[in-house]
């Protein structure tokens, strides 16, 4: 373990903003992409279902 305490971990040696922004933004992009893809596939299935029933 590299860290004396949790607050030292969150502080990242004074670079907290840069480090956590980088990792946080990456996580957000991944979550956003997965949610957008789920929505897109549900919409595509719904629309083809409507077309198939015509």
């Amino acid at each position: 373990m590299q860290w004396a305490s949790w607050s030292a971990f969150f502080n990242m040696g004074g670079y907290a903003f840069y480090v956590w922004f980088s990792f946080g933004l990456t996580a957000l992009c991944v979550i956003w992409e997965v949610l957008a893809l789920r929505k897109r596939s549900q919409q595509a299935l719904r629309l083809s279902k409507l077309l198939a029933q015509d």
């Binding site: 040696g13 670079y15 840069y18 480090v19």
Partner: peptide
């Protein structure tokens, strides 16, 4: 220092 840890995502 700790700023280099950005490397793991960058």
């Amino acid at each position: 220092g700790e700023a280099y840890r950005i490397i793991f995502v960058h």
